[in-house]
Write a protein that binds this DNA or RNA. Sequence first.
DNA 1: TGGATAAATAGAAATGATTTCTATTTATAC
DNA 2: GTATAAATAGAAATCATTTCTATTTATCCA
Lengths: 140, 140
Amino acid sequence: MGMETYIQVLKNNRLKVTPRRKAIIGVFMKHGVRMGPYELYEKLKRKLPKLGLPTVYRILEELKDAGILVQSLAEDRRLRYALCACPDEHHHHFTCRKCKKVEEVEFCNFNGLSSFIEKNLNAKVESHNLQIEGLCARCR
Amino acid sequence: MGMETYIQVLKNNRLKVTPRRKAIIGVFMKHGVRMGPYELYEKLKRKLPKLGLPTVYRILEELKDAGILVQSLAEDRRLRYALCACPDEHHHHFTCRKCKKVEEVEFCNFNGLSSFIEKNLNAKVESHNLQIEGLCARCR
DNA sequence: TGGATAAATAGAAATGATTTCTATTTATAC
DNA sequence: GTATAAATAGAAATCATTTCTATTTATCCA
């Protein structure tokens, strides 16, 4: 998925196409790893010396809501973000615990679990979030 | 699962059976909902006026590592904890987004997804964490 | 049962991530 | 080009979380 497609997603979500937003998406496209606000801020402050950390926080949240980024909880109990290559269809992501690379997992067999819950707990399942970790092909 | 069993889990993990730890487990047994450090601190400070918030943070982390508690990420981007009724066998938990009650889901069909990842990404899957939310039988 | 020992805790303090706020700038629609 | 609302900078506040040290306590063992 190229920058043009992400720009289209921004527009679809009524988010303006600003240099900051494009720059942050660009960093994620360049480095396929998950990153936190401060890491992005550090990587961008040369090109964008006036960038503020609050702006990074806000943009990350907006991009997550738009489906462009996925959020995950890191070992240090903080949130990291990574690019989602296909925001349109439901799927999951695999993160390498060593190099932090995030890869798409275009597969989900949650239906069985979901109907188990609806049947056994009589509950209505609304969302599920799966965080998968391990070692990628290169690091294993 | 009763207090005696949790005490046994503490011992198995070489954690001392202290009044604080028992009190925190007790609060979770009484309220079957997920809670954060400050909520527990508030609920306990009458019975344990000398309890400190850092102690609560530490105990929550220890009980999570021992498998007595499960951790989940709440909407406010903070971590909450809930009791795990069967720390021995792998399973998941369902949280009601309205009343925050946490229920056991003694089922997991992750194998299919796992072998999909190992085959397609040539990665080694080491762990997965599934957060399931919705409306419980009472709140739906 | 009582002392030895390491683990656990209180309490104060520091840390630092995250959020809030206001004035200014900028992307977009017309 | 201009109007408008959205986005941003920058400073400051907030507050969750962690660190540190002295003290207390659970547990082990004689």
